[in-house]
């Protein structure tokens, strides 16, 4: 029994190793000198470790310092706004009565079927007209509203027993006090999960940045990465140093917030 378990563990570790091999290759290549990139058999630990490529990625006029700042700005503002606005609306859908509630929620859900590609052209025109095309607001403003977030938090609020609200009502509390003083504290784990998922969407979002940003000074990390690769198309070591820079933050957030991410993703999906 123990041997079987040990054997399966070894096998699964081997497969997991294959899964993360691209990451290891990436980091190892970023530390090599150009001539050793495609040396085969692969030398996982280079003879001479070269940090120049990482330095190159992080310095200069359009460096990852700038891309990080841009991405952080967009992801943090959108995350904070989206989390709060989702909770606010989710409370309305889950715990208040009003005319047309079901119909409105149905419209929300059906908008989830509309692919982003349908919205790119009209949003492009609208943002030109509003004067926010090629600014960070073109990504932040729509990012404040997430249908998924409303959906997820509504599920959460619906599970909280109604008696809690009723007894607060009897004590004279209105909906706003119940929301801010009772529901938000109760929802902390769900809010944290949504916040992390939302942050990771914005941090990894390449497609919106691609459509709505043209000034390299405004580039986010994925777009900056693409730009770097276009400009240094034969500098494989530099490319891998840039890819490392693009991956590190989410990796750190994931390792720190593992519990929220894994539990959040699985609970919102299994019951969904």
């Amino acid at each position: 029994m123990i041997w079987k378990k040990a054997g399966l563990t070894a096998l699964m570790l081997l497969c997991a190793g294959l899964m993360i091999l691209p990451f290891i290759w990436m980091f190892s290549t970023s530390l090599k000198s150009p001539l050793d990139v495609f040396q085969y058999p692969i030398r996982w630990i280079p003879d001479k470790i070269v940090w120049d490529h990482h330095i190159k990625v992080w310095t200069g006029e359009e460096s990852f310092v700038l891309y990080y700042a841009n991405s952080l700005k967009i992801a943090l503002i959108a995350m904070a706004g989206a989390t709060f606005l989702s909770a606010f609306a989710a409370y309305g859908f889950a715990r208040t009565q009003f005319k047309g509630r079901e119909l409105m929620f149905f419209i929300y859900l059906s908008m989830m079927m509309v692919p982003p590609q349908v919205l790119f052209v009209p949003k492009f025109i609208m943002f030109e007209w509003l004067g926010i095309y090629n600014t960070h607001w073109a990504i932040i403003l729509p990012g404040l509203f997430t249908i998924f977030g409303v959906f997820m938090l509504r599920q959460f609020f619906m599970k909280i027993p109604m008696e809690i609200s009723e007894s607060a009502f009897i004590d004279g509390a209105g909906h706003f006090r119940i929301f801010f003083q009772l529901m938000l504290p109760l929802a902390k784990p769900a809010l944290a999960t949504l916040a992390i998922i939302d942050f990771s969407w914005h941090w990894n979002d390449y497609e919106n940045a691609l459509v709505f940003l043209i000034d390299p000074k405004l580039y986010t990390v994925p777009l900056g990465l693409k730009n770097f690769i276009l400009e240094h198309s034969i500098d494989y070591n530099g490319m891998m140093a840039a890819a490392t820079a693009g991956i590190i933050p989410m990796l750190i957030i994931f390792l720190l917030g593992q519990r929220f991410i894994i539990e959040g993703i699985s609970s919102s999906a299994v019951k969904g």
Binding site: M19, S200, N204, Y206, L225, A243
Partner: peptide, 15 residues
Amino acid sequence: YFMPYITSGVATAFV
């Protein structure tokens, strides 16, 4: 096993 999913798709695509 979860690592590829959480990291930036574009960065890993270049790898």
